[in-house]
Structure formats: structure tokens, C-alpha cells
Design a protein around this nucleic acid. Structure first.
Length: 511
RNA sequence: GGCGCUAUGGUGCAACGGUUAGCACGUAGCCCUUUCAAGGCUAAAAUACGGGUUCGAUUCCCGUUAGCGCUACCA
């Protein structure tokens, strides 16, 4: 079913679904950047929506900058995000022959030529003579190349040639972009770009360049939709030219806007974390992160924004992709996380909390589902109730270990400022001691019993219930902010509450 | 410099020729009174600028400005 409620004829839709093939093609020159993650997510949502195929391809053709050890982190990041793939990962570094064959084909049919210019000549992009511009600004004047080797320069002895594409001298190159519409570029603006690096040592040719690699692979992998960052928009005509030279039909392109930092400049480390794996270690829930990311540069059309993965898939379409760059807003991401912490079915949240408590060393095996209850009847049901009580006030997973430590461990910090704030009244120690005595004798341990007992003590002592309640909270969890007191008492258990009250009073007396 | 893309509150998105320009985050204030890092309510806050087209422009066209991208034997 489409968002508008219409359905395609079954045979038609099935056929279309099985056809869509998309890919995510990261380069292992860094970690998985949030921008790359968003691109991967869009590809994945599109593939799943269409019932198509998601392919992962590692673009590692630059031996100089490539760091193979970074691949694992990228794959881990994708898995954490829940972005899985149906084919791959394929490595371009292992497909060199394919690219060389394609380059030779271009050479043979006149679409490319051998270039004997030294690599340094073009370094920095100054392809021809400096323009008239008298004062070279940062980067210097630049003009488009029409390499003089293109008409068959005699080979230079001892110089290994690179292969360059022979861009047509006139005319335009156009293509269809699902986001930006029909695009047309003048060929005059496209330089004779390098297809294959010159060979090192005894190689005839070197590694493929980006433009050749993507096109050859996208053809070979039968990619139907190229969904990638808008930074590739200007390079696309080069690729379209290559498709033609290789006698292939270009796919549908879909360039998605970039993600910027708070100052609207390209998102970088100085804006905060850009490595997706940092968000995992910070303790964000993957589904919350996914929801947030999906809404950066895409919208289902209405006002809804809390969309679980299934809804994201159901509603995703290239038509909903925006053409404007988006700023990565961490506070909103954190809001999404709190929403997921509160709204997720508890059984989906529990495993995440379990992982967190294991990480911090607070986890007890008896809290696992199906395990035998531990001391004081603490079992999985207790764990579930406790997490449920805690979660409205949690922002990030590690808060379960730090802010909520008193619920999972008897060793927890007592906040001096909280004590200062709620233990002002000199009657507090006496009241707490009385409360401990009363609570110890309770035959039933539940919210109302704790409530009645506490209020009775407050009344007898001539203070407002709130005073005692706040003081008690500080006494049993060590901090000013926690879930409602009587729920907290129930979860902590009778013995523990009594013990902590007495410990607190003793500590108060000494202080 | 050349070429390209974009332009709705501080931020993310709605409104795809006619709305008092909507929602959310954030911010401020108020309420709840058992704390707040929970919850509820309210407020401030936007169509970059200038021309067209049209009965009517946030919406279509042109220009300006600004931001971003590309302009490598990087991807």
C-alpha cells in the first residue's frame, strides 16, 4: 500500500520490487560519519520499501589514504544502526582487473586516451595556464582541462601514462535525479578526468580512480538507483559520460542533501561527535538514532515524527527527500532518545539496559529472564519493574549505571548538595529514625503502606509530608532527583530501605 | 575564479497558487506539589532581499545576497 492508499497491480508491483538494487559505498579513509550513515540508511529504507536488494561495497582504490582496519568499525556502525545488506561487502581493491578492462575498452573505442603528463602538473587543480585573474586567491585560479595528450601525444620514454577520459568538446550531458529533477551540464565545464592511475614499477596501469570504479561496479552490480550525498551531484555528468562510453544505461540518481554542523559549515569533529560509533558508546538507542537520522533531509509529509523502523520503511520515498542541507541538532537527537526510552515496549528496552549494566559491572545474573530469583526475591520481574520506574527520567543508557546506581547496587554516592537542600530541618534525623522503625514493622510492603506510614510519621512530628518525603529520598538513593518515593521504596525492598535510612541517620549524626 | 545546488522561527520538518503559515526540538513563563532530568498548559520566534507572472504568491520566473558543493593520478 502506498501512502496515498493506492495499491499497484500485484504483478506490476512485485516485478518492480524485485528489480530495485541499491548500494552503500563507503571509503575506509575514516570512521562511519553520520552523513554516510544517513546515506546508508536512505539506501536501506529504499531497498526495504521496494523489496529490493541492498549491496555494500568498500571503495578502497586509494592505497595511500586507505586504512583497512577502519572497515570493521564501519561495518559495526552499520550493524548497530540496523542497516544490513544482502550482498557484499565487495572490495574495489580486489576488482582492479575489471576496471583496467573497462579503461582499455574506452581506449579502444576512442573514449579515452593515454596521458603522459606528470602527475604533479595537475596537482592542485591548475590544469592549464593561469587565468587572467591577476591576484590568485586561496587555491589560485583554476580552469577546466582539455589535456594536450588527448589527440595522441607521442609516448614519452620512461613515463608511464595514466588513462584519461576524452570528454566531448561540445554539447551537454543530462541525467535524471529523483531529488533534484532533470539536470543538464555543459561538457565544456567537465575536464578530461583520470580513469586509471599510471602504473607503478612494472605495472602497465595503476589503480582505478573513483569515477571509473563507481561506474564499472554500478553497471556490474546492476544498480538501479544511486542514492548518495549531494556532494556528488557535480561529478555525475562525468559518470553519465562513462556509462555511454561503456554502452550502458545510467541508473536513476538520487542525491541527498548534506548534513551540516550548528554553524552551517560542513559537519566536522569540532561540531561534536561525527563518528556513529560514538553515539553507540554514548548510550543512544539505535532505533532512536535511526529515527532522528531519517528525518534529516527527509519527511513523510505530515507532522508525525516519531516513526518506528517499520513505519519508516512503509513511508520512505525519494519524493520526500529534501534538497536543502540539514543541521545536525544533538539536543533533538537526545529528545528522540528519551522518547524511545519511555515509549518502547519494556521487553525491547530490557536487553539494552542489561548490556549497559554488564558494561558497568552492576549486572546480576538473577535478573536475567528465566533465571532463579536472587536474594530478597529480586528476579527478572523485579528488574523489569525497576527499569520501567526509572526510564522516564533517563536520557542515555549509561544513566542506568550512574544516575540510577542506587537501584542496582548498595554502593552509591550520596550527594552533599541534595542533603544540604532537603535535610535543612533539624528534626530530619529523628524523623527518619522513627520512619525506619515504623517501616521495619510493616507486614505488607507496597506503595500505599509506605505512603500511609510516612505521612503518619510526618504528621506526628509536626512537619509537612513533603519535607519527610524529600529527606527520605535523599537518604535512600543519595540524590535529590529520583522516581516517586513510594514506588522507589517498593522496588528497593523493605530491608534495604530500613538499612539505608539508618545508615543515613548515622552518617548525618557524624557529619 | 569557474560551474552547480539551496534559501519557511535558533534547529528539524509541514503547507506542493488561496491557511489566522502548522508540528516538533530548544528557549521563557505558569501549573502539578513528592523531588525533576517526569508530566500538563501558555508565550516569544520564520516565508533572505528586489523585481516580475497571476484576481491571488511561502509556492512559478529573473536578479541580488548568503550558505554549501564540485573544480585531485581523493572518494
Amino acid at each position: 500500500m502506498n501512502p496515498d492508499g493506492k495499491t499497484l497491480p500485484m504483478s506490476d508491483s512485485v516485478q518492480k520490487r524485485s528489480l530495485a538494487r541499491v548500494r552503500f559505498a563507503p571509503s575506509p579513509t575514516g570512521y562511519l560519519h553520520v552523513g554516510g550513515a544517513r546515506t546508508a540508511l536512505f539506501n536501506w529504507l529504499f531497498a526495504r520499501r521496494q523489496g529490493g536488494t541492498m549491496i555494500l561495497r568498500v571503495e578502497d582504490t586509494d592505497a595511500e589514504r586507505n586504512k583497512p582496519e577502519l572497515v570493521q568499525g564501519i561495518l559495526d556502525g552499520l550493524r548497530w544502526l540496523g542497516v544490513n545488506w544482502d550482498e557484499g561487502p565487495f572490495y574495489q581493491s580486489q576488482r582492479t582487473e575489471l576496471y583496467r578492462a573497462a579503461a582499455k575498452k574506452c581506449l579502444a573505442n576512442g573514449a579515452a586516451f593515454l596521458c603522459y603528463c606528470p602527475a604533479e602538473k595537475y596537482a592542485g587543480g591548475d590544469h592549464t595556464e593561469p587565468a587572467q585573474d591577476e591576484e590568485p586567491k586561496a587555491g589560485g585560479p583554476r580552469r577546466v582541462t582539455r589535456c594536450s595528450c588527448r589527440d595522441g601525444k607521442p609516448s614519452t620514454p620512461g613515463v608511464k601514462p595514466a588513462v584519461r577520459f576524452k570528454v566531448p568538446l561540445g554539447g551537454t550531458t543530462k541525467f535524471l535525479d529523483a531529488v533534484f529533477g532533470e539536470r543538464e551540464f555543459s561538457n565544456e565545464e567537465i575536464e578530461d578526468f583520470v580513469l586509471l592511475r599510471s602504473g607503478k614499477n612494472d605495472e602497465e596501469f595503476g589503480q582505478s580512480m573513483y569515477q571509473l570504479g563507481v561506474v564499472v561496479d554500478d553497471i556490474d552490480m546492476r544498480i538501479t538507483h544511486v542514492i548518495r550525498g549531494a556532494d556528488h551531484l557535480s561529478n555525475t555528468p562525468k559518470q553519465v559520460l562513462l556509462y555511454r562510453a561503456l554502452h550502458s544505461e545510467p541508473p536513476v540518481f538520487a542525491h541527498v542533501p548534506l548534513i551540516l554542523g550548528a554553524d552551517k559549515s560542513r559537519l566536522s569533529k569540532r561540531h561534536g561527535a561525527t563518528d556513529v560509533n560514538m553515539y553507540r558508546t554514548d548510550g543512544f538507542l539505535p532505533e532512536a538514532f535511526r529515527n532522528f537520522l531519517a528525518l534529516l533531509g527527509w519527511s513523510p509529509g505530515g507532522d508525525e515524527e516519531f516513526l518506528r523502523t517499520k513505519e519508516l520503511i512503509d513511508k520512505f520515498s525519494l519524493e520526500g527527500v529534501s534538497r536543502t542541507n540539514a543541521v545536525f541538532d544533538r539536543p533533538k537527537l537526545e529528545w528522540f532518545n528519551t522518547q524511545y526510552l519511555q515509549r518502547l515496549p519494556i521487553e525491547e528496552l530490557l536487553p539494552e539496559v542489561e548490556k549497559e549494566l554488564k558494561r558497568s559491572g552492576l549486572w546480576k545474573p538473577e535478573w536475567a529472564a528465566g533465571a532463579a530469583p536472587g536474594p530478597e526475591g529480586r528476579d527478572h520481574a523485579w528488574f523489569s519493574r525497576t527499569v520501567d520506574l526509572l526510564r522516564p527520567r533517563i536520557r542515555l543508557l549509561p544513566d542506568f549505571s550512574s544516575w540510577s546506581r542506587a537501584f542496582f547496587s548498595d554502593e552509591f554516592p550520596r550527594d552533599a548538595a541534595a542533603k544540604e537542600k532537603f535535610w535543612k530541618d533539624p528534626k530530619v534525623p529523628e524523623l527518619l529514625a522513627k520512619l525506619a522503625d515504623t517501616l521495619e514493622k510493616l507486614n505488607e510492603w507496597n506503595h500505599d503502606a509506605c505512603d500511609h506510614a510516612s505521612r503518619a510519621i510526618a504528621e506526628a512530628g509536626g512537619v509537612k509530608a513533603g519535607l519527610l518525603i524529600n529527606a527520605t529520598r535523599v537518604a535512600i538513593v543519595g540524590q535529590a532527583v529520583a522516581p516517586p518515593l513510594f514506588d522507589t521504596m517498593v522496588v528497593l525492598g523493605q530491608q534495604r530501605v530500613v538499612r539505608r535510612l539508618r545508615d543515613a541517620v548515622a552518617g548525618f549524626g557524624k557529619a
